[in-house]
Design a protein around this nucleic acid. Sequence first.
DNA 1: ATGATACCCGAACGCTTGTTCTGTGTCAAG
DNA 2: CTTGACACAGAACAAGCGTTCGGGTATCAT
Lengths: 232, 232
Amino acid sequence: MMMVRKSKGITDKHIKVLEFVNEYQLRNGRPPSIREIGEKVNISSTSVVNYYLLQLEKMGYLERDNRVSRGVRLTEKVNQIVQTGNTLHVPILGPIAAGIPLPELQPGVSYTTDSEADAIAIARSLLPAKEKGDGLYALQVQGDSMIDAMINDGDIVVMKPATEARNGEMVAVWLPNNNEATLKYFFKEKDRYRLQPANPTMKPIYIKKTEPLEIKGKVVMVIRRMDKPLAA
Amino acid sequence: MMMVRKSKGITDKHIKVLEFVNEYQLRNGRPPSIREIGEKVNISSTSVVNYYLLQLEKMGYLERDNRVSRGVRLTEKVNQIVQTGNTLHVPILGPIAAGIPLPELQPGVSYTTDSEADAIAIARSLLPAKEKGDGLYALQVQGDSMIDAMINDGDIVVMKPATEARNGEMVAVWLPNNNEATLKYFFKEKDRYRLQPANPTMKPIYIKKTEPLEIKGKVVMVIRRMDKPLAA
DNA sequence: ATGATACCCGAACGCTTGTTCTGTGTCAAG
DNA sequence: CTTGACACAGAACAAGCGTTCGGGTATCAT
């Protein structure tokens, strides 16, 4: 019986509305009408849909153009709740360098960057195959410590959370014994792991299976922007 | 007097319509109404707008949902005429490797890939600063010849057409004397050019100003997708 | 009990919008 | 000159759509 009172904030219904608007927009290239929203969110009256839209507008999740058909527009803020558009917003969680530990991320909640400032947009079609993009995150490389992975200072590494890897996948690993983070191709051999640099002219390093090795994620993509000219 | 007869194909008016629909969609997140189109394209009758929309639909530039307000949707094909959306479609013109010459591109026409198959989508916000993205093109690296630029086999290099460069910019150059294409940071010195590899552990090569050196473009971005695992 | 608040319905009104029909002028081919 | 394709205007109609208003039912603090 009793519906749980959600006091102020956002309710399931609000999210349902946002999700549907987003989904409809994605599929049809235009926002839904009020009646279309009501139908899918199970609200039989247009006034109630309007009621929710007003609230969502006040909360900043959408903008409306008055007395214009389909005048609903999701704002950036919605990306904190559902992913919108053809572009994926991947949060940049922090730097990555040899000497500093890789960021831990709690399994469930991963997106929701407080400010959308530290995120990059990636076209969905640019992602490998059917990478749904859930939980992807990005790190910005600091310093030259990843040159053996053909990755430069300033490059952005897009990662997928993982604690295991298959042979040949590039992973971010933390080596507690060396106190070092590194990006390498991962191979499991007889009694050791082989960590192969992307640069074919460089030699692999070997880790015995008895030694600790923590896989923190798989590398999905590397992006290098040539914003500013090289100094020297 | 006489309007030039455009026989079959697309007329200026058609393009005006497509451009406006695209622009409106970009700005408002929804397609324009028929009357809004007419207003901006200088057509005073809704039936005439409808007339053009029918033609554009037949030509495959847009799809319509009948008796649905703002039921106009631009198709991929429109990207051959105007760039749409938050994503930029950059055509992949071909491979790049040390031994093969860089593709020549005629100044005006650069986009319009016949099939949209060989193009990648890049979020506009991912591009450096106010790079408008006009005339950008991409090349796919073949082989290991660009490792000194920290660029791998299979990487995608996004380029901007250019024949000159400022110091510190990474450019694609063709060295006729060596019959070689290469990606290097460009520096003009007293009586020579210094071509500096991105990999800081590698040494530059020098080209006397008397020797030929053709700058083919500036490197805007490098993208590496980790689609499939490494074989070895 | 009482009022406040949140959530919801249905209907009516009027503007917005897509659709359709009739008509006009131009231009090229027959 | 006639014919027909083409580009366009204008008006009228019906359906789509946002807005508004009057009413209803729970839940909760007072």
